[in-house]
Design a protein around this nucleic acid. Sequence first.
DNA 1: GAGTTTGAAACT
DNA 2: CAGTTTCAAACTC
Length: 509
Amino acid sequence: MQIVNPFGPGEQNEKEDPFTQPGETIELTQMDPTHDNLAANEDPDKIIISNPSKAVSNLHRGMRRRCLDFEKVGARRKNIEDGSSSGSVVVQSDEKITYENTQLVPFKPSSDSSRCILPGIGLHLNALAINAKDSKKIKHETFSSSVTLSGSAASFHSPTSGQELDESLTLVSAERDMDPNDNVVPFVEDFSQTSPKKKRRRLEGEAEACKRCNCKKSKCLKLYCECFAAGVYCIEPCACQDCFNKPIHEDTVLATRKQIESRNPLAFAPKVIRSSEPAPEIGDESSKTPASARHKRGCNCKKSSCLKKYCECYQGGVGCSLNCRCEGCKNAFGRKDDFPNLGSASVEMEDEPEDETEASEKNGVDKTLQKTEIQNNDEQHPHSALPTTPLRFSRPLVQLPFSSKGKPPRSFLGVGSSSGLYTGQRYGKQNFLRPQWKFEKQFQNVPDDEIPEILRENHSPSSGIKTSSPNSKRVSPPQSNLEPSPGRRSGRKLILQSIPSFPSLTPHH
DNA sequence: GAGTTTGAAACT
DNA sequence: CAGTTTCAAACTC
């Protein structure tokens, strides 16, 4: 297979096969003990997806997989190419899969604006959920299996949560692609035949929130692109130009991702890390509060005072932390100065003499948030029938007092990747079928008892990220965390091992 | 809708 | 690693 080089001949940097890195192993191979055959069967010309990152990044990746359709596609393709497709659960007729389907499904028309609340990844899976209306099978397998979200999850429950995640991923993508009931084709055609403007217009209003990236130069293959960064393909609502972030360019996307990850293994990790408690080992209550979430790298705001969505922390609905290098931080969710308070930063009054109005302002915001959340809780219930996708787990903790247009923060999309994966596991059961935001909100109420030991130990990638390089903008591989304390290791290891089992979830033959 | 501002990402 | 440039979202008008 040949890589489509998304970059023009004159494009610097990327023009020279930026995707492959010598000495690196294919991700899936690395992650999947059963992948040897797969790799062996790879087309020689097929680009080798590299994965320089190790355990931790794998951890993220494993989680992310559920979100990354293109990865799933890649994985699926491997399965397809390999006769031993792990497909029992996944698919039976892989050969019929078209990548376009992957892309299309999300476009399935729907007036259900609720799905638009979760653009990005959510679009895909939410669409799935919508499709699920026509297909209980999808609904059941996809969501129940994911993260043990429902009682039926038992059927998929594996000793390793990671595997569950992968399973869910596989199922999600597979079901979506394969389900004959999906009826995506007509929809697809519809969109494909419609001019961008027309499509856009169509989506306006009903789904303005679905509007996504607007990239012009990045080809949607850089983190500038919200879709790409979120680990999803660009879809209909996008107004991007020269977009390569589409299933048809799967290889390019994968390769580019690898490249970016090689530079920053956590590039696709969730930006907002939950329960980044400074002392997770303590396991105190505070560590369970979403309020303890922090932006993984912290912001670097200079002028926005962390009060606008320019600020990733604010955008993510979390307070600034010591990782932040912001100036004049007034983050309503918790100022950097308040970071030592961590979990309560965004909720409690601080005795920051520096600015009373800020405190009150913060309080006001929190109240607003709380109110919003409560309202949303009520409002969302009607949608509880909508399957909650793992992707939704990666939403921000709180409903921001976002503006006017009611347009959800794009960054909420998904965060791409793994973010919520862990938390999702933690709260899956109770929140099955619930919208993400609610999910997050609720998860703080989950009794510790209900949190599987493993998850308790591994629930947050933050521990690794956080300790690695608090102030470095570009997160380096948190190697230090690759060697967790013995107590944690067991748990983490489970997940790490589970990830490789991605294809294995499906009994061979 | 066009233009500006902003800060992350990418690059040097 | 710091400084600069590029980029696209957020924001303003």
